[in-house]
């Protein structure tokens, strides 16, 4: 069952993953030969310039996208088809607009065979946990962007997935709401530490949330440039942690890696930047 390597089986593992879009002469290699492990209970953030293929890596772990080479494992099992044990929080709105907040959350249990009455009462509890008890009967278009993210969070977590995949989930939100959502995520995560793979382009957010930050290079053929351990104490609060001198030291170190890649990505897109 477990891979031959020593130590406990990682919750998420990417082994030599390459992702290619298209075929023949027009083929585009987005990601080249990425190895990445997330230990059980570990929160790993991936940062990288726009278009470096960090989101496609999540799709490979989720089983929504098949890699050209290499493989992904969740809980030691190779991902084939949609990874049932993974929860995925998308960047865009992914709620079903024709269902109320409550129905969006409870359907996540119902499709797994939970009786509707029980699914509903558990969904109500989860909505309360994300602070939306009063909004259960609202439809997504009647909620703010932040509230929709809270519903999506409840929808994902109610299934109790073994691992969490997050694709810039708070990207579309304003800065304050993003900070609050980060705190909410950490407080929920603290309760039963699942392994998390969190993709973001916001370095501050990555450091504030994660145990480890992985920097990806600019595309095409993006790869892992460096890995940094975030040894800041938990529990954290996003507003306070950003004032910590250790935060700044770490930020400086990671940014020096990231900056080079960001400049390269801009060079690819817009030609050389005049000094």
């Amino acid at each position: 069952m477990t891979p031959a390597s020593a130590g406990p089986c990682p919750a998420i593992a990417l082994e030599g993953v390459s992702i290619v879009f298209g075929a023949g002469a027009s083929a585009y290699e987005a990601v080249a030969n990425v190895d990445l492990r997330v230990a059980p209970g570990e929160f790993v953030a991936i940062v990288g310039p726009t278009g470096c293929g960090k989101s496609t890596l999540l799709n490979v772990v989720a089983g929504l996208l098949a890699p050209a080479r290499g493989k992904a494992r969740v809980g030691g099992v190779e991902v084939r088809g949609v990874a049932a044990s993974a929860g995925y929080l998308f960047q865009q709105d992914a709620l079903m607009p024709w269902k109320t907040a409550l129905a969006n959350v409870s359907v996540a249990l119902e499709v797994g065979g939970v009786a509707p009455a029980e699914a509903k009462s558990r969904a109500e509890k989860w909505l309360a946990r994300v602070g939306l008890a009063r909004f259960a009967e609202r439809y997504p278009h009647q909620l703010s962007g932040g509230q929709r993210k809270r519903v999506a969070l409840a929808q994902t977590l109610i299934r109790d997935p073994a691992v969490l995949l997050m694709d810039e989930p708070f990207g579309p939100l304003d800065a304050q709401t993003r900070g609050l959502m980060g705190d909410l995520l950490l407080s929920l995560w603290q309760a039963d530490r699942k392994a998390v793979l969190f993709v973001t382009h916001d370095l501050d957010e990555a450091i504030a949330l994660a145990d480890r930050v992985v920097v990806m290079s600019a595309g095409p053929s993006s790869r892992v440039v460096s890995r940094h351990v975030v040894a800041l104490p938990r529990p954290r609060e996003s507003a306070d942690i950003r004032l910590d001198p250790a935060f700044h030291a770490l930020r400086g170190a990671i940014w020096s890696d990231l900056k080079a890649e960001v400049m390269k990505a801009y060079g690819e897109q817009f030609g050389e930047i005049a000094p």
Partner: peptide, 26 residues
């Protein structure tokens, strides 16, 4: 919406459930 569809898949919906909860209402 491909995102709504991908999300429904990640919630563990099979083909029949996708039809009922996603395609049909749309």
């Amino acid at each position: 919406s491909p995102v709504v569809l991908a999300n429904a898949r990640m919630l563990g919906m099979n083909e029949r459930q996708l039809l009922r909860h996603v395609y049909w209402p749309s």
